[in-house]
């Protein structure tokens, strides 16, 4: 349970930490698009160097990034295997029925694996260096134009920040309930699938119960403190672009330009 990185924020004062969350969010998205566009070795090498630079300027220990990639290794391998056996084009090395190993298939498999890793790394930088509140603040601010078409921006941002805020709480809660049931002899790692599912009920029901209670308490607490929706509320954390964001943007633009040039070259 402790390994789950989602929603875990590592406080710090690095260059990346001090960037505006909106800039970080947009630049991360741009980077992800650029990585998808890259289609040559040189472009991937550049993308990789960019990712490493970002990681280095976040000042967060490499161990964290490994923890971010580790749980997804299975998914990456599966995609690679599918790509290897079903990819077509180029020289055919082996083939049996619809399965075949081709030079293009192999190359694409490697590219996909690299893309996966790069995207996980950069989005991990984003979630580790930006607190959940900042992220929802950024999304709220970026979606603000949608207010014109009556999109409930405040409500969405509030829902998002509450959801993010309660992820660690729910994890702790799950662990508590798990421990209580384990003490009563529940063994979640043995028995048939049906038996295991049945035991899972002893976790899920208390968890839902407490989540609903929490939601109700939170709603009551907010109302009793005068919450009336987001309209006209001022902000405690005011977002401001700074020098770091300009430097970050220029760096990213230059990198993307480089990737695009390399893409067209090969």
């Amino acid at each position: 349970m402790n390994k789950i990185l989602f929603g875990r924020y590592v406080p710090g004062t690095s260059f990346v930490h001090r960037m505006d969350p909106r800039a970080k969010l947009i630049l991360s998205l741009i980077y992800i698009v650029a990585v998808f566009m890259a289609n040559s070795w040189s472009a991937y090498v550049v993308s990789f160097i960019i990712a490493l630079t970002i990681i280095a300027s976040s000042g967060i220990a490499p161990k964290f990034f490994w923890d971010g990639v580790k749980p997804l290794i299975g998914v990456i391998l599966l995609t690679v295997v599918i790509q290897v056996f079903f990819g077509v084009g180029g020289h055919v090395y082996w083939h049996w029925g619809i399965l075949s190993i081709t030079s293009d298939g192999l190359l694409n498999a490697v590219y996909i694996a690299i893309r996966f890793v790069l995207i996980i790394l950069v989005s991990t930088v984003l979630t580790l260096s930006t607190s959940p509140l900042e992220i929802s603040g950024a999304i709220e601010s970026l979606f603000m134009p949608l207010k014109k078409i009556h999109f409930p921006v405040y409500e969405m941002a509030l829902m998002l920040s509450i959801a993010l805020r309660f992820v660690p709480t729910l994890i702790d809660e799950t662990e508590k309930i798990l421990n209580a049931q384990r003490s009563r002899g529940a063994n979640f790692s043995s028995g048939s699938i049906m038996a295991r599912l049945k035991k899972l009920v002893s976790i899920l029901i208390p968890l839902f119960e407490s989540a609903f209670n929490r939601a109700e308490e939170l709603a009551t607490a907010m109302e009793s403190r005068g919450y009336q929706g987001g309209e006209g509320r001022s902000k405690y954390r005011v977002l401001n672009y700074t020098k770091n964001d300009i430097i970050g943007t220029i760096f990213m633009m230059a990198s993307v330009a480089l990737i695009m040039v390399l893409r067209n070259w090969s």
Partner: peptide, 13 residues
């Protein structure tokens, strides 16, 4: 070893 946890009512299901 039986443990009655802090606020054990959260284990009822």
């Amino acid at each position: 070893v039986g443990i009655v946890f802090q606020f054990p009512e959260s284990q009822l299901f």
